[in-house]
Amino acid sequence: MKKIRVMLVDDSATVRQVLSEVLSTAPDIQVIGTAADPLFALQKMNRDWPDVLVLDVEMPRMDGITFLKKLMAERPTPVVICSTLTEKGASTTLQAMSAGAVEVVAKPTLGVKRFLQEAQDDLIRSVRAAAHARSRMILRQESVPPKFSADAVVAAPDKVTLHQTTDKIVAVGTSTGGTQALEVLLTRLPRTCPGLVIVQHMPEKFTAAFSDRLDGLCNIEVREARNGDRVLPGLALIAPGGFHLLVHRSGAQYQVKVEQGPAVNRHRPSVDVLFRSVARCAGGNALGIIMTGMGDDGARGLREMREAGALTLAQDEATSVVYGMPREAVRMQAVDRSLPLQALSEKIVHFGMGKLRRG
């Protein structure tokens, strides 16, 4: 079995030691070196280039973002950001994600050693996801927690046909590579586009900074969802990290619920939970889009949306950083059409104008 060769770059000797111990428990991962800063890392990498880099962003001599931009310009390599869980850290980490990092693991300011040991499964999954990533595109044998389905949070949609309304809704789900993909998708949308509800797999505290960053780049309004928010044209609501996002119908209007509940497909927020709730309340008034990401979260929910009358799209393999979630949705016959990332924004606009239908 070919192992995933990993380099660890962090100015904390404790973090380097614990990360090395945690990742070495996986039979398919090999830590080939560690470094206290990017300059030391480059010296080692030039002798033995890793498959995946695990990188802190706040380090001496050269910060992680400068290093990441240099890396992506000269020799693109999958990168997992392991960053401090603070508001300042969140903003910095999102700059790194925009620069090309494909995964993020948040670490607290205190109790880092214990946290990293307890986050073993997430760390290993993040490295594996990065190893599968198409880093050129910048635009288990260990124990795992129970894998709940969306049944744990929201009941399956019934067979009652829903009436068409003037309000339309677009539901989007994504994971690895999604921070860059959502930037491409949302920056191309006009203020007249239908309202969007979005799940991006991301830790707590990072989604608020992520939403704020997108809001500054887009013509539409983008913000972290709050309980009771109405889904409105020209508005994109992003699920807060650590909470599920659900849609319900109030008359002819759509509103969101933000709630915890168990992790579904080992994620909270879960794409399956969002898609199922949209299937239940919106039916043919909705458009479902599944984008780049590892795993199968969202595939079942997208099929439920399609069965309820919604049009469903998937990002194609050529433009996906990781073609895991879209592949599973296609395999489950949940997708009407697979399209390049750059074409999805136009389809959202056409959907809002009533020009996009099945067939």
Rank of each mutant, 00 (worst) to 15 (best):
V31N: 03
M97H: 10
T92D: 12
K107W: 07
I290G: 08
A150T: 06
P76H: 10
G228P: 13
G242V: 13
A299Q: 04
R136E: 11
G100Q: 11
G111A: 06
L94G: 05
I124R: 01
M97D: 07
P326V: 01
F210Y: 15
G283C: 11
R331T: 14
A130Q: 05
A239K: 05
T93N: 02
L23E: 06
A252P: 09
I65S: 07
Y323I: 04
A310I: 07
L19V: 02
R47E: 14
D297P: 03
L287K: 11
A299V: 11
V153A: 01
G178M: 06
L23M: 12
T166Y: 02
P108K: 10
F67G: 07
G234M: 02
L274N: 01
A263K: 15
R223M: 00
I4W: 00
P146T: 08
C193L: 04
A41E: 06
R114C: 00
G298P: 03
A41W: 08
S98V: 03
D51H: 14
T77V: 14
G261L: 06
R134L: 04
V127N: 05
M1K: 11
V144E: 14
T207W: 09
T77W: 11
V105R: 09
L116S: 12
Q333D: 15
M137L: 15
L23T: 12
T176H: 02
E87L: 00
F243I: 00
R226D: 09
V349Q: 10
A236M: 04
V15N: 02
K70G: 10
R300E: 13
Q180M: 15
V9G: 09
A129R: 00
L274C: 07
T166F: 10
P190I: 04
G359Q: 09
N285W: 13
R276S: 05
P60F: 11
V57L: 15
D11A: 12
D56P: 07
R230P: 01
G33W: 09
E259A: 15
Q17P: 00
C218S: 04
L302K: 13
Q333E: 14
V264R: 08
Q117H: 13
E183I: 00
V112N: 06
R140V: 05
I65K: 06
Y254R: 10
A236L: 02
L246A: 09
K159F: 05
R75A: 11
A329D: 04
I238N: 08
E224A: 02
M45D: 03
S91I: 14
L23H: 10
M332Q: 15
G293S: 05
L123E: 03
V52R: 07
S126R: 05
A96K: 08
V271F: 02
P194E: 10
P190F: 05
P269H: 10
M202E: 08
V112M: 13
E183Q: 15
D37R: 02
K159G: 00
I29C: 05
S126Y: 03
M72E: 07
R75T: 13
D151Y: 08
G64A: 07
L246I: 02
L185T: 11
D316W: 04
R16E: 09
G228H: 13
V199Y: 08
A99Y: 11
H244A: 08
L23I: 08
P50H: 09
K2Q: 13
S345D: 08
P233V: 10
H244Y: 03
R47S: 14
V31L: 09
I198M: 01
S149Q: 09
V153I: 14
I124G: 01
M294R: 06
D28Q: 12
V31Y: 03
A26L: 04
K2V: 13
I169E: 11
P233K: 11
V172W: 01
